Simulated assay, not measured.
Amino acid sequence: MKLVRFRSTEEEKYGILKGSRVFGLRNSPFSEGWDQEAPELDETEYALEDVKLLVPCQPTKYLGVGLNFAGAARAMGRPAPEYPVTFLKPSGACIATGEAVEIRTFEGCDYLYEGELAVIIGKRAKNVPRDEALSYVLGYTCSDDITDRRQFQKDDLRLKGADTFGPVGPCIETELDPSDVRIRSWVNGQLRQDGNTGEMIFGVPYMIEFFSSYMTLYPGDVISMGTPAGAGQIHPGDVLRVEIDGIGVLENPVREIYYESPGRQPG
């Protein structure tokens, strides 16, 4: 089942995506009364082209896992980590498919795309054992982890956390095996990444156990699971596309924004 959060001319709500049609849901899939086996429709129906897809959840945080694909670590000349390399983006970094990634360009700027599988937490999770972790997952979606690489080992928050640096979507697929799924990324129609989650060093159950051991995960929170080899630079005017088999396509243009304060230096 593919769940979407969308805006119609009347309201914002959740729905089920079937082909090119969206069927409205009476309740949020993150609500207490949600029954995934028998979701309750509200008798509304929309053409996909007539609605605006939103970020498919409303997270309190976007958690990420770095260097989590063995091939990507090798391509960077780095050993596979023995302990998860993690980071956090604020919820305000998240944008929907079709919305623009905004970057500031200046001499020496260096922004990176990273196509990834993202886990969407379905219910409150704290101190979750690994063998129960998947029961806390609502489903999975695509993410594009945007990085300001110039901030590496300089400013960890700006490295990952700027507005628009967390594209997520287009939908939440509730029936997916996260341990064996193909991830591909394109820039301007050119294939740049082609990997499989079978390369992940730390799997989804491990990371849910890991994060929930020291912080509470809330319904809608995002865990982005790392990227395969092939991540690279982006520039204004680029179109970024992430496709995950069984989920769909996340596509975002890249737009330049400018400093308005005279004398303020970027970086």
Rank of each mutant, 00 (worst) to 15 (best):
S143H: 05
D144G: 02
D144R: 05
D144I: 10
D145R: 01
D145T: 04
D145A: 09
I146L: 08
I146H: 02
I146E: 03
T147V: 13
T147E: 01
D148M: 08
D148N: 09
D148P: 00
D148H: 06
R149H: 06
R149L: 13
R149T: 05
R149I: 00
R149C: 04
R150M: 03
R150S: 10
R150T: 05
R150Y: 00
R150P: 00
Q151M: 14
Q151A: 08
Q151H: 07
Q151T: 04
Q151W: 04
Q151D: 03
F152K: 12
F152G: 00
F152S: 02
Q153R: 15
Q153E: 15
Q153S: 14
K154Y: 13
K154A: 11
K154R: 15
K154F: 10
D155H: 13
D155P: 06
D155V: 06
D155Y: 13
D155I: 06
D155M: 11
D156F: 15
D156N: 09
D156R: 14
D156S: 15
L157S: 08
L157F: 14
L157Q: 08
L157R: 08
L157A: 10
L157E: 02
L157G: 00
R158S: 15
R158E: 05
R158L: 15
R158K: 10
R158I: 00
R158M: 12
L159G: 01
L159E: 10
L159Q: 14
L159R: 11
K160A: 03
K160Q: 01
K160H: 07
K160P: 01
G161I: 02
G161S: 13
G161M: 10
A162T: 01
A162P: 00
A162Y: 15
A162W: 10
D163S: 14
D163A: 15
D163F: 09
D163V: 12
T164G: 11
T164N: 11
T164I: 12
T164H: 11
T164L: 13
F165E: 03
F165V: 03
F165W: 04
F165D: 06
G166C: 11
G166P: 00
G166L: 06
G166D: 07
P167F: 14
P167R: 12
P167H: 12
P167K: 10
V168T: 11
V168E: 03
V168N: 01
V168G: 04
G169H: 09
G169T: 12
G169W: 05
P170K: 11
P170R: 11
P170H: 07
C171A: 14
C171T: 15
C171W: 05
I172W: 03
I172R: 12
I172C: 09
E173V: 03
E173D: 08
T174S: 02
T174C: 13
T174N: 02
T174E: 10
T174F: 04
E175A: 09
E175T: 09
E175L: 07
L176M: 05
L176H: 01
L176T: 01
L176Q: 05
D177L: 08
D177H: 07
D177V: 11
D177M: 07
